[in-house]
Design a protein around this nucleic acid. Structure first.
Ligand SMILES: [Zn+2]
Ligand SMILES: [Zn+2]
Ligand SMILES: [Zn+2]
Ligand SMILES: [Zn+2]
Lengths: 148, 148
DNA sequence: CTCATTATTGATACTTGATATCAATTAGGC
DNA sequence: GCCTAATTGATATCAAGTATCAATAATGAG
C-alpha cells in the first residue's frame, strides 16, 4: 500500500453497522449518535451512564459491532476498562494524555517503515503492531503553567 | 542516555522485593521462585492456580510489588487479563505471538530515536511510550509448515 | 532466648467490567 | 397487516481484582 498517505475514513457509525448487515434500531442509533457527539474517547460504562434508556447489554453489543466493523478503536488501559475512540484514519496509533486521558490519533510513515526494518531483528513473522505515546497534552501543560 | 546499549538487569525477584523494604516471607519466596522457574509470561490467575498454598490476595499483592519495583512488566491484553513477564532489559518492548501467546522482549535504538523525532508531530510533551509487535513465532511457523 | 511491635497473610466479602439467558418486542419483507 | 428473524434488556452469572480484618509470622530490643 502507499507509504505516506493517511486515508481518512467516513465516520458514520450507524452506516457502519448497517454495512455489517445489522438492522437500524432505536437503541443502536442512540448509541451511534451519542458516540459521534462526544468526540472524545470513552469507556463502555460511561456510555451506559449517558444512555440510561438503552440496556447495558445492548450498549456493550453495539460497541463490539463497531469495533468489529473497524469504526471504533479499542485501547487497552492498564488498570482500567478499555477506552474506545472513533477510528478516523485507516491505520494509526494513539496519544494518551497521562493527566486528563485525552486520546489523539496519529499516523507517521516512519513508524511503519521502522516496522518493516525491524523484521530482521525479530524472531518470527510480524503480523501487526500497536503503539501508544503517553503525553502531557497542551491543555494540561498550559493549565499547569498558567496556574488556576 | 547511551543509544544502542541494552542494559541487562539482575533477575532476582526476592531481592527486588527486599530492596523495596519488604520482608522475606515464605509466601513471597514461593511466588518469586515460581515466576523465575516458569520463564514465560503468565497471568495472575495462572500463578494462583500454580500456587494453591499461597492466598490469592498475596499473589496479587506480590505481583504488584514486583511491578512497582520494575522487576516485572505488565502487558495489557485486549480481551483478557494482563500478562506479566520478567523485565530483563531496562527499557524494552514486547513481541507477542498471536498463535501461542509467547512473549519476547526487544530493544532497538531506532525505536527510541523515532520517539524523539516524533516530538514535533505530537501535540504536547511526550512522557513515555509503549509498543507491542504481534508475530507468529518461529515455533508456530514451523509447526504449521511441518503439518500435523 | 523472650517479648513486644509491626508487617504479612489469607478467608471472605465485595466491586467492577463484561457476557449469557431468554421471554418479550421490534424491524423489514411480502 | 402479517410473519419471521433479529433485537432488546432485565436478570443472572462470570471473571479479575481489591478491601477487610482477625490470626500469624518476622524483626529487633533487651
Ligand atoms: Zn484509534
Ligand atoms: Zn503502525
Ligand atoms: Zn517487558
Ligand atoms: Zn521504547
Amino acid at each position: 500500500m502507499a507509504s505516506g498517505i493517511a486515508i481518512t475514513v467516513e465516520v458514520d457509525l450507524i452506516t457502519a453497522l448497517e454495512d455489517q448487515g445489522l438492522r437500524r434500531t432505536y437503541a443502536r442509533s442512540a448509541v451511534a449518535t451519542r458516540i459521534e457527539s462526544v468526540s472524545e474517547a470513552f469507556t463502555a460504562e460511561q456510555l451506559c451512564r449517558d444512555l440510561p434508556e438503552v440496556g447495558r447489554a445492548t450498549v456493550y453489543r453495539t460497541i463490539r459491532h463497531l469495533v468489529d466493523a473497524g469504526a471504533l478503536c479499542k485501547l487497552p488501559i492498564l488498570d482500567g476498562a478499555p477506552m474506545y475512540s472513533i477510528a478516523r484514519v485507516e491505520h494509526h496509533h494513539h496519544t494518551i494524555c497521562s493527566k486528563c486521558g485525552a486520546v489523539g490519533e496519529f499516523r507517521h510513515s516512519t513508524v511503519e517503515r521502522l516496522m518493516r526494518s525491524l523484521e530482521k531483528e525479530i524472531d518470527g513473522e510480524i503480523v501487526g503492531h500497536r503503539m501508544e505515546i503517553f503525553i502531557t497534552c497542551n491543555q494540561c501543560l498550559s493549565s499547569t503553567n498558567g496556574g488556576e
